[in-house]
Design a protein around this nucleic acid. Sequence first.
DNA 1: CAAGACACGTGATTC
DNA 2: TGAATCACGTGTCTT
Lengths: 233, 233
Amino acid sequence: MEAFNWSSDIHGNAPENIFNGFLVNHTVLGSGIPSSSSLVLDSERGELVEAPAKLERKGVSTERSIAALKNHSEAERRRRARVNSHLDTLRSVIPGAKKMDKASLLAEVIRHLKDLKRNAAQACEGLMIPNDSDEIRVEEQEEIATLGGWMKNVFVIISCKQQNIEDAEYRQLLAGSVHQALRSVLDRFSTSQDLLGTRKRRRISIFSSSSLEDFLHAWWTTIFCCVELIWQT
Amino acid sequence: MEAFNWSSDIHGNAPENIFNGFLVNHTVLGSGIPSSSSLVLDSERGELVEAPAKLERKGVSTERSIAALKNHSEAERRRRARVNSHLDTLRSVIPGAKKMDKASLLAEVIRHLKDLKRNAAQACEGLMIPNDSDEIRVEEQEEIATLGGWMKNVFVIISCKQQNIEDAEYRQLLAGSVHQALRSVLDRFSTSQDLLGTRKRRRISIFSSSSLEDFLHAWWTTIFCCVELIWQT
DNA sequence: CAAGACACGTGATTC
DNA sequence: TGAATCACGTGTCTT
């Protein structure tokens, strides 16, 4: 983000064509006859017509207006920069979109999003396949059950009624904290396994933060119910 | 996309504040003395200064300029519509972004993209794990996967949009039918096992009908999320 | 030149 | 009110 120097030659050189917006001065495009009124481009008829006289309190208000305009345009520039910054990171995330225009870039982003979502749904199908073991041992303690060397944890997350579940920030916070907590546990486990130098396979799968959030948001239109029937043949 | 009527009251009502861009007419903000020259906001000094006289060929060129301007602004409007259309579809794709502003929406899109990509990588990594044992046989047929004598079914129940999911009767019916279907399958399996006189242990677990109904009933105040962490110790 | 993409400052609107 | 967002028409630069 480069610093911006507030000046009239905003594009690097002084603007030669002054008339901006709909307002055009007589001396610029008109008959050349000096007048106190200004011309406005009446687009409906495609003509230049007399602009209605503007009533305004003179004097002090002008400086305030100028300052307000300056703040306004600066804020707008910051807003544009924010949006464009995000567009740039998108350009860096989407492959082959380095120098795409905005519309094409967004179209590509949509394509990728749908592709990834479809893939994620497919990937989830193959998960959670238990390992084969002849010696099955079932232990149940509190909410933790181990089965043949496998352990299964079921987390039930209850919404806090104080909070509004439809609030995007709250959902994001919830999904993020859950994901982070699980991630830290898994990482701790992974490193402990690595430190032990075991060559045992491990299987780690969690819902991603976005998947979880998708679920939390879509829960009012869809019921996601996983019923597991596990039996030994 | 609504049709746009090219007119000066572009915002639905006639603009009261005429001065646009940097050009301001004397009668608007100036001393009130009629003049042929116009005022320009010199932003560097924050003052209103005399605008330099604009040299232009009079007459025919003006109409061409007007037509060009009209085409230009129309094209620009089409371009904006294209971008905004994509932003709208993004709003419909990203959960909870229905009425987000552009910047926040794009930030959310980036979050989702990264999450989904990470998730996809994780899933691909996990899927390679199960078949590195000689005694493990993986068979995939239709939607049923068997792994080393274990079978796993995952049922995803989607609410019928025709029906009102908040209707208690419908929920009860749904829960009941699901439970009955599962029960019949399990019973059929049990009897077949009994007839065969096998002494193998079996593990059968389903959500009871009341549990499922509880879930369906309380879904608007609670989030039921099952996150499974399965790893081999 | 035309046609398109962008950044700009602005008016309107909302909170 | 003041801050923030959006659509608008425009100027400039690139195909």
